[in-house]
Design a protein around this nucleic acid. Structure first.
Lengths: 232, 232
DNA sequence: TTCTATCTGTACGAAATGGTACAGACTAAA
DNA sequence: TTTAGTCTGTACCATTTCGTACAGATAGAA
């Protein structure tokens, strides 16, 4: 059963030409993406690419001693893992579903074949890879230079962008793991942002109520929405 | 005056086939790379790619408020900037020469044409891009999870790898900017590593005297040498 | 040699963050 | 409605790192 390109919410898949889409469509499978589902694991061969339609996947950098920090996030504007079309059979990053949703699964073999066959697919996917690269570099900067509150603000904004929503359903505990800070530190940062009137805490969630204010809170840790370059 | 591939010390250029090399060689220009030379600047069009033969280039992530942190480094194993062949006309990163040396300059136009023309060039360069991506992700992790001393140890090891030397000629002041820590913090970290017998400070330089010890100091912030995957 | 600029070592309080613990609030299941 | 589990708010001290300052050491220029 073929998937109709016009019904697709993933930006990469909907933007490519119908000829390019035809290179992929036979092997695309619509799947549920429940919370915590692991999309790729460090050190393991990657079997599938994942194109998100909604929800958010997180890419975390890991070290052998168990440290984990989020390097980047991907929503409907992208896919995981770029290692596949860049020719690496595995990745040191762990990708998993942070906010559940739906997406499309594609065997790596089909991805690499289409990438090899079509210059326009390469152009589209390479730009996404570059975009993600920049996001990760920005995360490295944020982790070295900005306070917990600023990093949290950046993170909420990036999630909001990708969800197209101002409700971000994640616990303080979870946020603290992503940002590599204390759980109590997240609570304090949220309170501070709440005091300024930028967010409203809920149990198990945070709601953005003043996006501009939140952007100011993030200072320049949060810059442009990554889609901008692709969409322009 | 053509450049002979066999005389080239850059790993990317020496590894590609002679047919692939022929796509580039007419436009390659051998250049000196003095300290602080800017190879690409945030927000500006990229005119040339740079292939290092020795020395080290630094890629720093920048924000508008003037924060700067090193996201990754590149030596003879690679080039800058990956944005060129990934199809982005500019990059948010600033690249400059950290440790002077020599290299080859190539117009972006030639790079993109060769990338479009040759699947094997794509394979080689894409793997490098993925490698660099992983390095930057690891930097994001290090910045969030490790102490100044651990990050410094990682950084010295990465430099040593790329230089093929244990003498790293950089001042504390410079290191502090790269790591986004106090200059005095670098001094203390070096003293600690010296006390353990892993490095020896010189004026304007640090010498690695016990590589294994330094690796232990870096804990798991420093993992594998990035060349491993490419060379294997 | 002498001078000057740069680099390094050291010190101090201030601020941010970590580690940990515990109580109250909320939610969902029994 | 009760109960158990989870989540959030708060507190305390320890540790790391920052900001800053200044003196001594070193290298190169005059």
């Amino acid at each position: 059963m073929q998937i109709d390109q016009s019904t697709i919410g993933n930006d990469l898949l909907s933007r490519i030409s119908s000829a390019d889409f035809a290179l992929l469509s036979a092997d695309l499978v619509l799947v549920d993406l429940p919370r915590a589902m692991e999309l790729s694991s460090p050190g393991q061969m990657i079997a599938h690419c994942w194109f998100l339609e909604d929800g958010i996947a997180s890419m975390v950098a890991t070290s052998r001693d168990g440290q984990e920090t989020e390097a980047g996030i991907v929503g409907r504007e992208g896919m995981t893992d770029v290692a596949t079309f860049l020719g690496a059979s595995h990745t040191p990053l762990r990708s998993f579903i942070q906010i559940p949703g739906h997406g499309l699964r594609l065997p790596v073999r089909t991805m690499t074949a289409a990438y090899a066959a079509s210059e326009t697919i390469r152009a589209t996917f390479n730009l996404f890879a570059h975009d993600l690269f920049c996001q990760v570099a920005q995360t490295a900067l944020a982790n070295a230079s900005y306070s917990v509150e600023e990093r949290l603000a950046r993170w909420l904004l990036m999630c909001g962008d990708r969800l197209g929503s101002d409700d971000i359903a994640l616990t303080h505990e979870f946020l603290s793991v992503m940002l590599n800070v204390r759980r109590a530190g997240v609570t304090l940062a949220i309170q501070s942002l709440q005091g300024a009137g930028f967010v409203e805490p809920r149990r198990g969630a945070v709601r953005i109520v003043d996006r501009d204010g939140l952007e100011r809170s993030a200072r320049d840790a949060y810059t442009a929405h990554p889609r901008r370059e692709l969409v322009k």
